[in-house]
Amino acid sequence: MQPAGMYSRDRCVTGVHGLDEILRGGIPYGSTVLAAGTCGSGKTTLGMEFLVRGANAGEACAHFTATEPSVKLLENIRQFAFFDMKMVDTGLINVFDMDVLYSWLGLEKSTFDLDDVHSLIKSIVDIVNTIGVTRLVIDSVTTLCYKIKSEQLIRDFLFTLGKKLATLGCTTILIAEITSATENAHWSSFGVEEAICDGIIVLGDIERMGHLLRFLQVVKMRGTSHSRAKHAIELTPLGVMLTPMLKWGAISDNVNRWGS
């Protein structure tokens, strides 16, 4: 029998170079992780790689895209050396356009009420359940939540969705767009996502002598110990590559200059 202190949750091995080491083995299964990042920080690429790596391992994956058309998204992931279009053809990678989903559900409106939110949750959960999705990415939850006007409703939406997906054993990455990734910044647009999610991965840029260096930092991950250090990112055809950021170079020039 395993001693109580030795218990560790099963992991969803992301397959992203370096990320599993940071997470000491991967994301605990069924977690809902917020990947919050500034524009151009590599959120979408990270999300897509997470799915493609899963599909490579034979897992069914789903991607809901609200920020760019799926056609473009699929074009972009072709650059991954480990991506094969067969993954889409055989149903391992399922990309859904949110605007098509909204249209099918009759949700082509600017604001969602409680009923709309519940029908959206039901549809996503239906899809996950029916095709046995174990990896899910919603890109972005910020765009989606803009349609939900009440903070309470956003909280309900994320909490209910996260709970239902966890029950189905689906590990989810919710991509969030933020305007700043500095120490004092919020890691979500609505202030509630960060509290509800099991994990937060922040992606941003550090300015070093006029150049932007992408970084990734795991701020929180329930159910696992993990590194909280900033890691530099390079986006390559082999996927996202990570290395610990130099300690003497991990502070943005602006922060040094202005102390903010």
């Binding site: 058309p69 399922n94 859904f96 356009d97 239906d126 095709i131």
Partner: peptide
């Protein structure tokens, strides 16, 4: 959604 609905949804790229 039924399975066939989901398959169709995953292949529908435009509204």
């Amino acid at each position: 959604f039924r399975l066939e609905d989901i398959q169709r949804l995953a292949q529908t790229r435009f509204v």
